[in-house]
Design a protein around this nucleic acid. Structure first.
Lengths: 151, 151
DNA sequence: CGACCGACGAGATTCAGTCTCGACACCATG
DNA sequence: CATGGTGTCGAGACTGAATCTCGTCGGTCG
């Protein structure tokens, strides 16, 4: 998806140093199509012999999260995962089969939040919404009712 | 909130044994007003010298979750917490100040999910929504603009 | 070119959550 | 009432994710 360029620029803009390990982590993230866990990156870094330490991966993820380059999400099984993303406020649809994620915009959540605020009396400050299901491809493969080809 | 009675009845109905430790955990949960973590219960059980083991707490929580007596939620900081709740599908509003949680019903989420499905092409199977903000009391305390008393 | 400070890797550490195990309680038989 | 099987228990070992520490390295700026 992103080739890491966005990351580099964002780091630069925010006044962080542009170090080799950070580029490497950015590269690892860029090479992924869906969500990933810290352990995934760690494993890949190790297998590619990038020589990046555990701490560095976590530091980089923390940094990228802070810069809104990456977002942390919680899978239903309790795992913590990350997805690359750029926008400020949005949500993710996560394919429970292949792990692909897609960003979606508000889609009326604002109205829901307001409704909740009205009913509960709370001052809603933020919310998180995660949707799970099958992405078009996986849906086509598992239930090929309308599409006739399966690959 | 609940005094554990609901728990006892649910266990009974579902065919699970009504053991003392389970009652104890139910009691611990009942004595809480907001969300709580497994560690919270653990600590309280220990300080009260209830003699309940770690595993038992987790087993009970797992059981209660399965029976829809309790729901697991993920706090923004990544912690795993639980809230007492009864209904099948609903969401939680969590006070980021005092930790109180309130259940809210769908509030139009169904429409949002459908809209997301339409835009993304995904088959949405489930979703999770968590709202964070200030509960009426905390809001009144921190910004007493309309209410004049502060306690 | 030199010094400072942020970032680094390695590994120790912590902590939540799970698993294992032997003991025990409950229920259903005989 | 004795017996056996099943489900649950507590304790503690274990696992793996995440954090922290520390001495070193390297980028940046004077």
């Amino acid at each position: 998806m992103t080739d890491g360029d966005t990351f580099v620029r964002a780091l630069d803009t925010a006044g962080y140093r542009l170090t080799e390990p950070r580029r490497a982590v950015a590269g690892l993230i860029g090479g992924r199509r869906g969500y990933f866990t810290a352990a995934d990156l760690l494993a890949e870094a190790k297998s590619r012999r990038l020589g990046i330490g555990r701490a560095t991966i976590f530091r980089a993820l923390e940094l990228f999260t802070e810069l809104n380059l990456v977002e942390r999400l919680d899978l239903p099984n309790g795992e913590h995962a990350y997805v690359e993303c750029a926008r400020a406020h949005h949500h993710h649809v996560i394919c429970s089969s292949c792990g692909r994620t897609t960003e979606v915009e508000d889609c009326g959540m604002q109205a829901v939040a307001e409704e909740v605020a009205r009913r509960s009396g709370y001052q809603i400050a933020s919310h998180r919404l995660e949707l799970f299901g099958l992405c078009p491809k996986c849906a086509a493969q598992s239930v090929p009712d309308r599409s006739r080809l399966q690959a």
